[in-house]
């Protein structure tokens, strides 16, 4: 699996962002201001910028730069914000429930974002390489077609052409496999037969896979099972391509609420302390 290297512009942005933030933190240090407050405000600013990417995606008709450029900014600020977060918490472990929740959410956000970046750079190429590229909406039809084709193959056999154990294996293992979903992790594929290892293990109760897959009447079904295995792998990749967003986006929403609450609490305590 090849991963496209990060954009040089994003790397430069990260560098500039860190230098500028470092300057402000040093300034705060020399003026004896509370460094947590300074880093907090900078962190909040970077978080607002990170959220703006989602807003930009909703208005593709405005001439405010390409979304691709905004994504690079988003990635750059994502990395900067992780360093700012550590600065903000002074590189220590969380104490208390609220802080632990913030740590966990932030960690989840960062990890899901990083995973998203990885899969978006690595998976498109492999998606096209398997030659089975399909619009996700068409996959159910494709699967239904496979099951029908496979059933037709079995129905077309002469009586006694297939061993009854094989037939039993077909109806109890192979057919349910053809109708099943793909899960979230890719199946391990048997190098010799090109079908999932788990399927072979289950088939062993009925017939030796070597005998089964070398049986002439079963060859068309074997071909369909192999196709399903490739399609499943493809679907898993498609799920990964979108799946990380199901974590990243909701966590962002919760994080926004937590940050607002955090700012209110800090401001309230500060005001209370001053009085």
């Amino acid at each position: 699996m090849k991963i496209r290297p990060p954009h040089s512009g994003a790397l430069l942005l990260i560098l500039i962002g860190i230098v500028v933030s470092f300057y402000f933190l040093e300034q705060a240090d020399t003026t004896l201001a509370n460094p947590a407050v300074t880093s907090g405000w900078i962190l909040l600013g970077s978080f607002v910028l990170l959220c703006l990417y989602g807003v930009r995606k909703k208005v593709p008709f405005l001439p405010i730069g390409k979304t691709a450029t905004w994504l690079q900014l988003h990635l750059g600020f994502g990395v900067i914000s992780s360093w700012l977060f550590l600065e903000h918490v002074d590189y220590r472990f969380p104490t208390g429930l609220f802080e632990t929740q913030l740590y966990l959410l932030y960690g989840l956000l960062l990890i899901s974002g990083f995973l998203g970046w990885l899969v978006m750079r690595a998976l498109p190429e492999t998606l096209r390489a398997d030659g089975r590229e399909l619009n996700p909406l068409r996959i159910p039809d494709e699967l239904a077609g496979m099951v029908k084709k496979s059933d037709d193959c079995i129905a077309g056999l002469e009586p006694g052409e297939l061993n009854p154990e094989i037939l039993k294996g077909y109806f109890e293992v192979v057919r349910p496999y053809l109708c099943s979903g793909c899960g979230f992790l890719p199946s391990r594929i048997h190098p010799e037969f090109g079908v999932p290892q788990s399927l072979i293990q289950r088939l062993q109760d009925y017939e030796s896979p070597t005998v089964l897959f070398s049986s002439d009447p079963f060859l068309p079904v074997h071909k369909i099972v192999r196709e399903k295995a490739v399609l499943d792998l493809h679907r898993v990749r498609q799920r990964w391509l979108r799946g990380w967003l199901f974590v990243h986006v909701p966590v962002t929403g919760v994080m926004v609420l937590m940050i607002v609450l955090h700012v209110i609490l800090v401001t309230a305590f500060k005001a209370g302390g001053a009085s």
Binding site: K57, P60, F61, K66, T67, W70, L71
Partner: peptide, 11 residues
């Protein structure tokens, strides 16, 4: 205002 929205939208 932006021209082709499809080009602008591709991240």
């Amino acid at each position: 205002p932006s021209g082709p929205a499809c080009v602008n939208a591709c991240p």
